[in-house]
Simulated assay, not measured.
Amino acid sequence: MKITILIENNKDDARDLINEHGLSLYIEKDDTRILFDTGKSDNFIKNAEKLGINLKDVDLVVLSHGHTDHGGGLLAFLKINSKAKIYMKRKVQEKYFTGFLLFKKNISISRNIFEKHSNRIEYVDSFTEIVKDIFIITDINKHYKIPDGNKYLFVKDGNRLVKDSFDHELIMVIKENEAICMFTGCSHNGTVNMIESVNSFFPHAHIRALIGGFHLVKIPAIDAIGPSKEEIDLLVDKIISKNINEVYTGHCTGEKSYKKLKYFLGDKIQYMKTGTQIQI
């Protein structure tokens, strides 16, 4: 399986690519081509062209959750790809916001997608194998604490904004031989909770790789304020106890948090930047 990071907050300086606050992964698994999230604009498409990747050939798209930095580029993708089905949870189409005190910013995915391209969407409401060896987990347990940064994220309920419960978030799992790789967009439900959820659906499978954002930045866009020592220790202990061989992270994990994880996990963890290619 080959994974190419089409969009992430940072980029490899050696490459002539565009970076933005968002995430988009292009995955080749046997004869299936998968897009996991689409960043917040069409920049992932421009990067794909520079990397020699033809997104017209993508067979399926999985949206991790309903925020625009993960699904904002979907409308542009639908203009160049006429065949891929888009898999998401039903609540992705609700209205989401971020902000402090009285200031709130709309971070919802464009309504045009749901109104004009409903024939391309496959809503997933329960654990599903969408194609051979590619699974969607919709039910995420919350035995452990969820990220502190969630307190700045909201969903519209009638005429008011309420704290987001993140029941629009999912996990993608790809099976490779007897092992599995799990993909998270932002881990709003907590990375440790997501690892435990994957383990509950695949109790006998070894999690070889964990790929995605971990939402360890406490205040959006302020990387200097990272997670507590307890949060880092819990995540490190879970990765080690589950014998997860490879960890690739970035985006909402935050560079400060990454450095802390790197200290404990060493070569087991790598930062994924725009243009990074991973072979699993």
Results as ranks from 00 to 15, higher is better:
3 I>C: 04
8 E>C: 07
11 K>L: 14
12 D>Q: 10
13 D>S: 15
22 G>A: 09
32 T>Y: 00
35 L>P: 07
39 G>D: 12
43 N>T: 14
44 F>N: 09
45 I>R: 01
45 I>V: 13
50 K>Q: 12
52 G>L: 11
60 L>H: 09
60 L>D: 03
77 F>I: 12
82 S>W: 01
96 Y>R: 15
101 L>V: 11
102 L>E: 02
110 S>I: 05
115 E>A: 12
126 S>L: 01
128 T>L: 01
129 E>N: 11
132 K>C: 02
136 I>N: 00
139 D>Q: 11
140 I>N: 01
142 K>G: 07
147 P>M: 06
154 F>V: 04
154 F>K: 11
155 V>S: 04
157 D>N: 15
160 R>W: 01
164 D>I: 10
167 D>N: 13
169 E>H: 11
170 L>D: 06
177 N>I: 14
179 A>R: 13
183 F>N: 06
188 H>D: 11
191 T>Y: 05
194 M>E: 15
195 I>Y: 03
197 S>F: 03
198 V>I: 02
206 H>G: 02
212 G>V: 04
213 G>F: 01
214 F>P: 00
215 H>W: 03
221 A>M: 09
225 I>Y: 06
230 E>W: 00
230 E>Q: 13
230 E>N: 13
236 V>C: 09
240 I>D: 05
242 K>C: 06
243 N>L: 00
244 I>V: 13
258 Y>R: 03
264 F>Q: 09
264 F>N: 13
267 D>Q: 14
269 I>D: 07
273 K>C: 07
